[in-house]
Simulated assay, not measured.
Amino acid sequence: MNHHQLEKDIQHLEHVISHISAEDRIPLSYWRNRIDSVSDAVRVPAQASRIKRLNDALSALEERQKN
């Protein structure tokens, strides 16, 4: 994945994750897979930090869904 596409994917995920809930029609598992696939392509610390925040936010949603 090239740098520009990776940046676009991270920006998209940041937007989506900040607006979804556990009750959305797209399951959280879909977003987990998307974050994981983008995470595999990360090469710079700033992107890794952003992916960590996305992981943390999605983990919180996943926990709320379990309860």
Rank of each mutant, 00 (worst) to 15 (best):
H3A: 09
H4G: 03
L6V: 13
E7R: 13
E7L: 15
E7V: 08
E7A: 15
E7K: 14
K8W: 02
K8V: 07
K8Y: 04
I10D: 10
Q11P: 01
L13D: 05
L13V: 07
E14N: 07
E14C: 02
E14P: 02
H15Q: 13
V16N: 01
V16Y: 03
I17H: 02
H19L: 15
H19F: 06
I20M: 02
S21Y: 06
S21F: 05
A22M: 09
E23G: 09
D24K: 09
R25A: 12
I26S: 00
I26F: 01
I26R: 08
I26Y: 01
L28Y: 03
L28T: 10
L28E: 10
L28D: 06
S29H: 06
S29G: 05
S29K: 05
Y30I: 11
Y30G: 02
W31Y: 12
R32E: 14
R32Y: 10
N33W: 00
R34Y: 00
I35C: 08
D36Y: 12
S37F: 11
S37H: 15
V38H: 10
S39V: 00
S39R: 11
D40P: 00
D40F: 09
D40Q: 14
D40H: 13
A41L: 11
R43W: 04
R43M: 03
R43N: 06
R43S: 09
V44P: 01
V44K: 11
V44F: 06
V44L: 06
A46T: 14
Q47F: 01
A48M: 12
A48S: 13
A48L: 05
S49D: 08
R50Y: 08
I51D: 01
K52P: 02
R53C: 02
R53W: 02
R53D: 12
L54I: 07
N55G: 00
D56F: 03
D56C: 05
D56V: 10
L58C: 00
S59Q: 11
S59E: 14
S59D: 14
L61I: 09
L61P: 10
E62H: 10
E62Y: 04
E63T: 14
E63G: 10
R64W: 05
Q65L: 06
K66Y: 00
N67Y: 13
N67A: 13
